[in-house]
Design a protein around this nucleic acid. Structure first.
Lengths: 122, 122
DNA sequence: CAGTATCCTATGAGATACTG
DNA sequence: CAGTATCTCATAGGATACTG
C-alpha cells in the first residue's frame, strides 16, 4: 500500500495529526471517553485539572477532526454527550499503549532526570 | 502489579512524560533514531524543517529523560552520535504505532475537517 | 561538524467571572 | 448543566547569525 504520507517530511499532513495527538489534554480525553458516551461535566471531573474553557477547545478540535462525536439532547437542564467515533476508536489503541507506557515508566524517567541533574552539578 | 500512576490524576508524573512525548519534535527524533546511532547532522537532515537550536533542545531533554544516549567522539572535525537507549527502545514501539496511525489516517482527518468547516459556514 | 547566542512572537493555556 | 467571555502570561518554538 502506498500511503504517501511521511512524518519526517515537512508540510506533511500527518505532522499536523501528530501535533494534535500530542496536545496537552487530547490524550486524556481519549482516556476519559474510553468506556463510552460521557457527559461534559463527567469528562471534566474525570480529567483532573482541566478548565472548562480548555476542555471545550480540546473537544471541539477533536470533533472537527472526526475523532469525537458530540450529541446534544434537547432537555432542561441541558445534556451533551461526548463519545469516540469509529475513527477515534482506532486511535484509542495506539494512544492507550503510549499512556500505559507513560504510567509504567514515569518512575524510570524521573530517576534518569535525577541522575542527569546530579551529573551536571558535579 | 501496582503502578500507582494515573494520567487522569493531576500532578501525576506520568502526565509530564506524556507531555514530553507529545512535544513537536520528540516523536520525529524517535523515528530518525529508529535504525541505530546517527550523527547530529544526519538527524537534522532527516527531520525536515527542524532548526539546530530546537533539535539540540529536544535531544538534550530526551537525553536527560534517559531515552537517548549522546556519544561524543574526540575527533576533528567533531562527531556526535545519538541513539535510543534500552528504555527509549521500549517507547519506540508504541510511539511508532501512533506515527503509523497518523500517516495512515491523515487523509481521514483532513476530510473530517473539511466536512466540519463546510457545516459551520452553511 | 555540532552546536551556541540572541532576539522575537504566536499561541497554548490558566484564572476568573458570567450566561442561556 | 454546559458552556462563553475576557484577560493575562509563560514558553515553546522560529529566524538569523555566529563559533570552538
Amino acid at each position: 500500500m502506498d500511503t504517501s504520507f511521511d512524518v519526517l517530511n515537512n508540510d506533511c499532513p500527518s505532522r499536523v495529526v501528530l501535533q494534535r495527538i500530542g496536545d496537552k489534554w487530547a490524550p486524556l480525553v481519549f482516556q476519559a471517553l474510553k468506556g463510552g458516551p460521557v457527559r461534559f461535566s463527567r469528562v471534566r471531573s474525570t480529567i483532573q485539572g482541566v478548565t472548562p474553557k480548555v476542555l471545550t477547545q480540546t473537544l471541539r478540535t477533536l470533533e472537527r477532526d472526526g475523532l469525537v462525536r458530540r450529541t446534544v439532547f434537547a432537555q432542561v437542564p441541558p445534556r451533551v454527550d461526548y463519545e469516540l467515533t469509529p475513527l477515534g476508536l482506532t486511535l484509542l489503541e495506539p494512544l492507550d499503549a503510549v499512556r500505559a507506557w507513560a504510567e509504567a515508566n514515569a518512575a524510570h524517567i524521573l530517576d534518569a532526570r535525577d541522575d542527569y541533574d546530579d551529573r551536571q552539578s558535579s
